[in-house]
Amino acid sequence: MKLAVSILAIAAALALQTTLTTFVRGTAALDFVLIVVVYLALTSGPATGLIVGGVAGLIQDSLSSGIMGVGGLAKTLVGYLAGRLGTQFIVTAPLPRFLVFIAATVVHGTVFMGLYVLLGLREFPSPYSSVAWQAVGNAFVGVVGFQVLEWLPGFRARRQWRRTARR
């Protein structure tokens, strides 16, 4: 069940990433797949985080024109680290989550860009600012997404309870 949810979440994130960015301006900087990976890592632990991160990253790489495995490696590390943070600390309030998303984006960006630069395959004109903006964006979307997903089960329960009460 969990695996299926994870696969669905990744698929949804990839779909969102590939479609939303063409319609909604300013979303190109966001990494929905990374947000999903961090979410799953925080809620399921480091093992799930790194597996999901690795798989999602590889799929993302395969869909992009870059080197296969660079994104996978970056997301593997992010998934693992986020999972570790989730098991070591209480990351339930919006601010810690925000910080985790920020950190995750920074780590991802560092590994991703660092590998490309190290291998001499690509240059990034303004890496700090792009990572910073992406971190803020990912953190905002992530925290909101977290809140929504946590709010959804309660909302459904309350709606069911109201329907039952009316009858």
């Binding site: 597996i51 690795g54 080197i67 296969m68 495995g69 660079v70 490696l73 291998l119």
Partner: peptide, 10 residues
């Protein structure tokens, strides 16, 4: 294992 796998792929 995952890191090694990725490094190999890269």
């Amino acid at each position: 294992a995952a890191v090694v796998l990725h490094v190999v792929i890269i």
